[in-house]
């Protein structure tokens, strides 16, 4: 399975070469790393996922001595590796550019958001296709707009306040609870994806 993760990183080599310097430039002009970190991680994880989606690639992967469980698991572990690479770049970039240590809670928050995103995106993409994710996002965005306009006009402010509250939590029990919840969600999504993928016909 390590081979599969290594394969994903090798295949994304060129993307990383473009993405990581771009990430540093983003850090240079803007200090709000959360948005940038989430966007870049999600982009590379989904790019790597989409590359393996073609029926012919599935045929190849499943003909090689790998099990379907391993193929799915490699994507979930690979997503963590990619997130780690992005976070590491942010930390190193911040030290070099701003001479400051990135706060741990910010990093954890980025990782948390990615994990939640992936937990929904992967099973969805295994069930349908990752290209439909954009459509799903579009539909969700419309729902969000309806929500903001009709029901909760200050949703944006509430979200922003929510994020600030989470980041300002000092209570380590709450923190641990949050991490545990996110990890459980990821695990559940992982198992679900294995179930979906093992029934797939190429």
């Amino acid at each position: 399975m390590l081979n599969l993760i290594r394969k994903d990183i090798v295949l994304q080599k060129n993307t990383l070469v473009i993405l990581l310097p771009a990430l540093l430039i983003a850090l240079l002009i803007d200090r709000s790393i959360i948005w940038v970190g989430v966007l870049f991680s999600f982009a590379i994880i989904m790019q790597s996922f989409a590359l393996d989606e073609k029926p012919s690639t599935n045929l190849l992967m499943n003909s090689l001595p790998y099990t379907r469980k391993e193929i799915v698991s490699s994507k979930y572990i690979g997503a963590c590796v990619f997130t780690f690479i992005i976070l590491l770049t942010i930390v190193v970039g911040n030290i070099i550019i701003h001479r400051e240590i990135t706060q741990l809670d910010q990093l954890l928050f980025i990782a948390g958001v990615i994990v939640v995103f992936i937990s929904f995106a992967f099973p969805f993409s295994y069930l349908f296709k990752s290209q439909y994710l954009m459509i799903a996002c579009g539909v969700l965005f419309v729902l969000y707009l309806v929500l903001v306009n009709k029901f909760i006009p200050d949703l944006n402010d509430r979200l922003r306040a929510g994020v600030q509250t989470i980041l300002s939590f000092d209570n380590s029990v709450l923190y641990a609870g949050g991490i545990l919840a996110v990890v459980l969600l990821y695990m559940f999504s992982w198992m679900l994806s294995i179930r979906i993928y093992s029934r797939k016909v190429f």
Partner: peptide
């Protein structure tokens, strides 16, 4: 699968 070599009719 370790003991099988495969060739498909299209590029995989």
């Amino acid at each position: 699968k370790q003991r099988i070599g495969f060739v498909f009719d299209h590029n995989v």
